[in-house]
Computed example of a mutant assay.
Amino acid sequence: MKILTHKNYNEMCRAAADIIVKQVQQKPDSLFCLTSGDTPAGIYKLLVQYANEGKVDFSQCWFVGLDEWVGMDKNDAGSCTNFLYETFFIPAKISPSQMMVFDAKAADLDASCEAMNSFIKTHGPLEIMLVGVGMNGHIGLNEPGVNFNSYAHHSPLAPITVEVGQKYFKHETHLTEGITLGLRHLQEAGIPMLLASGIKKAGIIATALEGNVTNEVPASIFQTLSSGHVMLDEDAASGLINGH
Rank of each mutant, 00 (worst) to 15 (best):
K2A: 04
I3C: 07
N8C: 03
Y9N: 00
Y9D: 02
N10M: 10
M12V: 05
A15V: 09
A17L: 08
A17M: 09
D18E: 15
I19E: 14
I20K: 09
V24G: 00
K27Y: 10
P28V: 11
D29S: 14
S30H: 05
S30N: 00
L31E: 09
D38N: 15
A41H: 10
I43M: 06
Y50H: 14
Y50N: 09
A51K: 13
V56N: 04
D57P: 07
F58I: 03
F58S: 07
S59H: 10
S59I: 05
F63C: 04
V64A: 02
E68F: 03
W69V: 13
V70R: 02
M72R: 13
M72N: 02
M72L: 15
D73P: 09
D73R: 11
A77W: 01
G78Q: 07
C80E: 00
F83N: 15
T87L: 13
T87R: 15
F88P: 09
F88A: 06
K93R: 14
K93Q: 13
I94C: 08
S97T: 13
Q98S: 10
F102M: 05
A106D: 07
A106G: 05
A107S: 14
D108A: 03
S112T: 01
E114M: 12
M116I: 01
M116A: 00
N117D: 15
F119K: 04
K121M: 06
T122P: 01
H123M: 06
G124L: 06
P125C: 09
L130V: 05
G132E: 10
V133S: 10
V133C: 12
G134S: 04
M135A: 14
M135W: 01
N136L: 13
N136F: 11
I139C: 10
G140L: 10
G145N: 01
V146C: 14
V146Q: 00
V146A: 13
N147K: 13
N149W: 07
Y151L: 15
A152Y: 02
P156N: 01
P156V: 08
L157H: 02
A158Q: 13
A158W: 04
P159I: 02
K167D: 12
Y168E: 14
Y168S: 15
K170H: 09
H171P: 00
T173K: 07
H174D: 11
T176Q: 13
E177G: 03
I179L: 09
T180C: 00
T180R: 04
L183I: 00
Q187D: 07
P192R: 01
M193G: 00
L194C: 10
L194Y: 02
L195W: 00
L195P: 00
I199K: 15
A202T: 09
A202H: 00
A202Y: 06
I204K: 04
I204T: 05
A206Y: 08
A206G: 01
A206I: 08
T207I: 11
A208P: 06
A208H: 06
L209T: 07
V213D: 05
E216V: 03
A219E: 03
A219S: 12
S220Q: 06
Q223V: 03
L225D: 08
L225M: 04
S226N: 12
S227I: 04
V230K: 10
V230R: 08
L232E: 09
D233T: 08
E234W: 05
D235Q: 15
A237N: 05
S238D: 03
G239S: 02
N242S: 12
G243H: 12
H244C: 03
